[in-house]
Design a binder for these strands. Structure first.
Lengths: 138, 138
DNA sequence: CTTGACCTTAAAGTTACCTTTAAGGATATG
DNA sequence: CATATCCTTAAAGGTAACTTTAAGGTCAAG
């Protein structure tokens, strides 16, 4: 699998794949004939893993660490487990906050529905500002 | 209210408040005596608004736009409404994805609980890699 | 056997969001 | 009335995650 093929499968650009490779997150082998980087199915899984953890808010550095530990055969990684166990509550908390915020936004939008368009109600967003600028009670 | 006071209330640094001010998101008036920037309660609400929308994934540029429209008296802003109406589904989608991911992570962590620590089970993260690297079905 | 689409690299550029530095003026306290 | 802690500014620096550039090698098609 060449760089562009992996990129397409993973939904990223070839440059991004090259960047991850430079950064040590992917470890392709080489075609001895032409020096091309060749990726296998493990790279596909890794790329997916990277995207999952990016979405969860992990940095590429953290992900590199996790992948490195993941690749060590025969070594249980309580270290990794601890890292993840530590992060999970924070992730849940962030999701909670996001939900609370989006709910409030939904409500604000709904309450706007009732306001006739073009009438001198003025500042719709000002109202959202009022609605949202109160301290969050989760 | 001086810059540091607003910063403390908003839970950011004074430098961040100054930065937002430079960027036109906050509009303090001046103490004519000493040139200090003075913020009122509207600035507090704005700062909270900024943080809410940052968390929801809006850029400072977008937020500046929303705030600008919010501040126009007497002008309904169907424009702003449209912007927000457009973003909300995406925000919900992101939250859904985050939840799906975190649920899978929870499950993976749970399944690890059963594995005796220090035994030759090896690559715990490799297993998470397997668990998480399958296409997401939301 | 040329043309166009791939591949390689190092290095520089980009964007967003701050943060730090530097040099100086204002204010509050013992 | 010194000194510590604010305040001001412009400009430079930092970091993450890419992206672009440039200069060149490889390959498949016609």
């Amino acid at each position: 699998m060449k760089v562009s093929e992996l990129a397409q499968v993973g939904g990223v650009t070839a440059e991004t794949v090259r960047y991850y490779t430079r950064e040590g997150l992917l470890r392709p082998h080489r075609d001895p004939q032409n020096g091309y980087q060749l990726y296998d199915s493990e790279s596909v899984r890794k790329l997916c893993f990277i995207q999952c953890f990016r979405m969860l808010g992990f940095s590429l550095g953290e992900i590199r660490g996790l992948l490195a530990e993941a690749m060590q055969e025969g070594t249980p990684s309580p270290n990794t487990y601890a890292t993840l166990a530590e992060q999970l509550p924070q992730i849940h908390a962030r999701i909670q906050e996001l939900q609370a915020l989006s709910r409030r936004m939904d409500q604000a939008m709904e309450s706007w529905q009732d306001i006739p368009d073009g009438l001198p109600t003025g500042h719709l967003v000002s109202r959202l500002l009022d609605d949202l600028s109160q301290p969050v009670i989760v």
